[in-house]
Design a protein around this nucleic acid. Structure first.
Length: 437
RNA sequence: GGAACGGUGGCAGAGCGGCCUAAUGCACUUGUCUUGAAAACAAGAGACCUUACGGGGUCCGGGGGUUCAAAUCCCUCCCGUUCCGCCA
């Protein structure tokens, strides 16, 4: 959520920053929020005043009873009871206003970073690095690379989506043999490559409603997540969800920032809005594996971490011999919680499209406010400063398995139909260096 | 899943309707003393909301209730420990 105090004091700036998203509802939402905020503060003041009076009167009642002055005690008691009723009424109003306000806050998006390029949709996202393609560009791929991975996978017996559909449902995938090994190798490789700075976590794959709300998936995108209603749990759509909430409700020491985590996890997505799209192969599935990297940082550390994380993903993709480009998400295409965001896309010559394999994002304090993750600052002498500050959160996929797996099949397919496994994966392949050899 | 007992400040741990504005100990911070440190002594110290910056309010696992008044009584949910059952 955005900062109500910031909004109150700099309403115009916030509104015009939000307007860059091109979402017309923001303006009225902000106005309504400010009104509710005003009401809430008045109600709080009235309630606190009445409560202070009750506390005072109750103290008197206790004293009077101890002194044996029953008559006077009854009088004061009656006065206090009347005030108690008054407090009850105010609290009722308070509750109504504050829940309205909270609901609104959960729907108002984050303020874009000033450097986010202007644009209306994903057509306006500029390429900021690359494209890194073979000589000849998109025409530089050989004919034997222009086979879609679902055909390659089936021919080599390493992809069996038909049976995945039989035992689960459509849009589930299944790799077999060396294909399954390579899927796992990719995770292992991604974890090992980031272990220099990121602590490995193996988080729960099911989380509570509160946890899924902290990262912004709820309440707005409930249809996209798998719910286990009987136990009031949700399947995580990404390890970002448990990792962000790792320190939810806690106060960290500035000395421990940035705190960096990485996790392998399965990811579950209902893909409610995209039925019938990308149904073939590995481009879109209800369940897939991913290694996520995430950082909790001070506002000062955040920009450097953002570019570091993008660079890490680029290096990983290059080391697999894949062709990529980095695009920046423009103001009109930015996700609700995002402050600034970059996508890393890999070119898949077989299905002839750029595949989004990672999205690295900076959330400013938007998620931290929801999840209540703060830190204590230290002064020049290293002594703790009074008060607390919200952390900034950043995250991105270090490696999303299915699309990378698909791009490897297509990019490294040789003239003989066999796929060369990238050398960096060899240590994890039990001696295999090719698929289908 | 069944039973019993628990959840209090950074930690440990008392309190079981009103002098709780939460004891005490440890840890912490600042003074005094000291060349410096330790020890001793003294004082202080949390979070959140609000403020006319004097204050005021909220927080004893969460929520609800009883009461003039709740850490304390009642209901409910969550979490923990131990025993039983079941399992990997």
């Amino acid at each position: 959520m955005i900062d109500v105090r910031q909004l109150r004091e700099h309403a115009d700036e916030t509104c015009s920053a939000l307007a860059r998203r091109g979402d017309v509802t923001c303006d009225s939402q902000v106005k309504e929020l400010l009104e509710l905020d005003q009401q809430l503060r008045q109600l709080t003041a009235r309630r606190d005043e009445a409560r202070a009076k009750i506390n005072e009167l109750s103290r008197q009642v206790g004293q009077l009873r101890r002194d044996g002055n029953v008559e006077q005690a009854d009088v004061v008691q009656a006065e206090s009871r009347a005030l108690g009723d008054e407090v009850g009424r105010i609290e009722g109003e308070h509750e109504t206003v504050s829940s309205k306000m909270h609901d609104l806050l959960l729907h108002i998006p984050n303020v874009p970073h000033p450097d986010v390029p202007a644009g209306a949709s994903d057509d306006d996202n500029p390429v900021v690095s690359g494209p890194f393609l073979p000589n000849g560009g998109l025409d530089g791929f050989a004919a034997h690379q222009r086979v879609p991975h679902w055909e390659i996978g089936e021919a080599l017996g390493i992809l069996d989506n038909e049976r995945a559909t039989k035992i689960a449902a459509s849009m589930f995938t299944m790799q077999r043999g060396a294909g399954a090994t390579m899927a796992r190798a990719l995770c292992q490789y991604a974890l090992d490559s980031n272990a220099d700075e990121f602590e490995e976590i193996r988080p729960p794959s099911l989380v509570s409603t509160a946890t899924l709300t902290s990262t912004g998936q709820l309440p707005k995108f409930a249809d996209d997540a798998y719910a286990i209603e009987r136990d009031d749990l949700w399947c995580i759509p990404t390890a970002e969800v448990p990792l962000t909430s790792l320190y939810g409700g806690e106060i960290l020491d500035a000395g421990n920032l940035p705190a960096r985590f990485m996790a392998y996890s399965p990811c579950f997505r209902r893909e409610a809005g995209s039925a019938g799209r990308d149904t073939r192969g590995m481009l879109r599935a209800h369940e897939f594996d991913k290694v996520e990297i995430l950082a909790l940082a001070t506002p000062e550390q955040a920009p450097g971490l953002l570019s570091d994380m993008v660079t890490r993903v680029e290096l990983m993709i290059s080391s697999l011999g894949l062709h990529h480009r980095v695009i920046e998400i423009c103001s009109g295409d930015l996700g609700q919680s995002h402050h600034r965001s970059f996508d890393i896309e890999v070119y898949a010559p077989g299905c002839e499209q750029w595949l989004e394999v990672s999205s690295v994002s900076w959330f400013s304090d938007y998620q931290a406010r929801r999840a209540d993750i703060r830190y204590r600052q230290v002064d020049a002498d290293g002594k703790p400063v009074k008060g607390t500050v919200l952390v900034h959160t950043l995250n991105g996929s270090a490696l999303a398995v299915p699309r990378v797996w698909a791009a490897i099949l297509e990019t490294h397919r040789q003239a003989d139909g066999i796929v060369a496994i990238p050398e960096v994966l060899w240590p994890y392949m039990r001696g295999l260096t090719v698929l289908g050899g």
